[in-house]
Design a protein around this nucleic acid. Structure first.
Lengths: 336, 336
DNA sequence: TTGGCGAATGCACTTGTGTGCAAGCGTCAA
DNA sequence: TTGACGCTTGCACACAAGTGCATTCGCCAA
């Protein structure tokens, strides 16, 4: 049986003719080693292809491992979140284990247990719905827990979120300024805290102003769901002329069907606002007005939290979404 | 200083009133433990919140860690590859460390060294160009190395690839059957082995048949590059009426500009073929004819390779791309 | 020559696990 | 009653690192 044969510090020590401690010290900053032995050790290490075993190091101190829990990775917005998070964590010396979870609680539980098995220093939840008890297990084991865009407010965990109510309010304002009279809202049946919040604020403020809003709940948060929603909304008479889709993907599907199957011109006959600012929103076929999440800043904040480690552990930070004006909404008209 | 206080097997043993070995055996399949002690151990473990430390376990045997090296994660095709790979690896009991690399060799080297530091059992390279010497270091340390869609054929590493020449040939055939006379090819300056192969075969066969092909090399493999290519190709007189873009993203940008800025109808005036079958290719605005990579099958094969471990370690497996017919190419016409 | 001092080095212990080996214990048959 | 046998269980070691403590070595000054 092949036994994995990694080269260990002992082998290096033997080859260099020094003690194993000397090898260890050579690779430890600030330890006391003479220049001569240091060189001998480095030579031997190079010849054998030695690499410090971080697993063994992690036995005593921190493992430098961060678990990234994420679902629906193929979604453009998620892909970007994962990309930015892993990049920044890596740059800061962390190594990230990705746990890809379906949305069902079962697989998330299994995955989070892995987190504990590998003694991750921290767990960052991008999506998925981990059971509160498991999160508590992570906390009990001394892990730092960071939740992004979720409302579960658990003692001891940090939370980052985008200010969804601000987005809902601003979306309404944009459509009103464009002169839209019949408002519509397209949301998904996912009913995440973020989605619900955007939806709620948009509808509440509109109704408070005496405006009617047609709410359509589509399927999952996909292009196809957006397309279906458009068919339902415009299938009956008197469809809306201004729509807030709580997600860019929904918006893009919605736009395609509104144009192709109902001959509506955007933004002349119909204004659309999305949320996320995925790459495709900027494509010529869409030019969707939307809101960007400040992902880089959020990732930076996460990394800061992990590096501080002792910092106020239980807090909640809100980030402002950035409005991105494109052509799917008419520019402001004179209010009469 | 907070000392991370993880629960160890010794603590469980003390609480349960048994030896530490008993705890170890309780969590090892097939080990000899009486039903009574087993129950005592499980009770104590539950009460304390104990989880086996896989890092320590990895000291002696395999770590069950797989390193996934990937660049350009936000690209739809890459996001799907990462999604499918992590999902399948996870289902098979592996844990994946994602190494997000810029394309420059430096960062890939640094990342791969991490791979060695954490004693990953295997390294799977989805993209990026690791230096041959580092791959050899991985192999020397007993790691399994799997390269996907790259041509570096290193002794001891396994390679999976899509049959790019088949795609190039088939793309040409589709355009010819649609009656296209003036052929074009859009590629990127990335010049990956895969891209070069698709390009080469398309051009070679076409020229062998006496057909002229206008080759345009755009920037990186993005939507914007495709858009630029279209402007260059149609800016001069006598633009092509049948184009193979070596990537879907290029194709989508190409289509948008061809339609919006040059008023060309697709597929009446212009036929377009892509490659990858990203989700957006199926959107109503595009309906791009393209080739799908059998990603699930490829991931399954990777997992099989890792699980076999002793299997013929150095081999190369080719997968057939699957043609996806949509509306960006005219259906076959009678050949006169 | 000797005492003193600082730098370098090695010993031994720590971390959390799995496991070979031998001892212990209980049961059953002769 | 005793020997044999099998299931449990604990001891001790291995794994690969970091580090406190004591020891050694070299150098310098008195």
């Amino acid at each position: 049986m092949k036994t994995r044969s990694f080269v260990s510090a002992r082998m290096v020590a033997e080859r260099a003719g020094v003690s194993r401690s000397a090898v260890s010290r050579t690779f430890t900053d600030g330890a006391s080693v003479s220049e001569e032995t240091r060189r001998k050790v480095l030579d031997a290490a190079g010849a054998l292809g030695y690499h410090v075993n971080h697993l063994a190091r992690g036995l005593r101190e921190r493992s430098n491992i961060v678990c990234l829990v994420v679902s629906n990775m193929t979604t453009p917005i998620r892909a970007r979140m994962v990309d930015i998070m892993t990049r920044q964590l890596q740059a800061s010396g962390w190594i990230t284990m990705v746990i890809n979870t379906e949305t069902d609680t079962e697989s998330v539980s299994k995955a989070l247990r892995q987190t504990l098995n590998y003694r991750a220093d921290a767990t960052v939840v991008l999506s998925g719905t981990p059971s509160a008890s498991l999160i508590e297990a992570c906390l009990a084991n001394g892990q730092q827990v960071v939740l992004i865009n979720r409302d579960d407010r658990l003692k001891g965990s940090s939370t980052l979120a985008v200010d969804n109510s601000l987005a809902g309010r601003e979306a309404l304002f944009l459509l009103q300024r464009a002169g839209c009279k019949r408002l519509g809202l397209v949301t998904s049946n996912a009913q995440t805290a973020s989605l619900v919040e955007r939806e709620r604020v948009f509808v509440d403020i509109a109704r408070a102003q005496g405006l009617n809003v047609t709410v359509t709940m589509a399927g999952p948060t996909t292009y196809e769901s957006g397309a279906d929603a458009a068919r339902r909304l415009f299938g009956r008479s008197n469809g809306p002329d201004g729509v807030f889709c709580v997600t860019d993907l929904l918006a893009l599907g919605f736009m395609d069907v509104a144009r192709d199957e109902f001959g509506l011109r955007i933004p002349e006959d119909l204004c659309v606002v999305g949320f996320d600012d995925i790459e495709q929103a900027d494509w010529r076929a869409y030019q969707l007005t939307t809101f960007a999440q400040p992902l880089e800043a959020m990732a930076t904040h996460v990394v800061d939290l992990l590096n501080d480690s002792e910092g106020a552990s239980s807090d909640r930070k809100l980030f402002e979404p950035i409005p991105i004006w494109r052509r799917s909404v008419r520019p402001g008209v004179k209010t009469d």
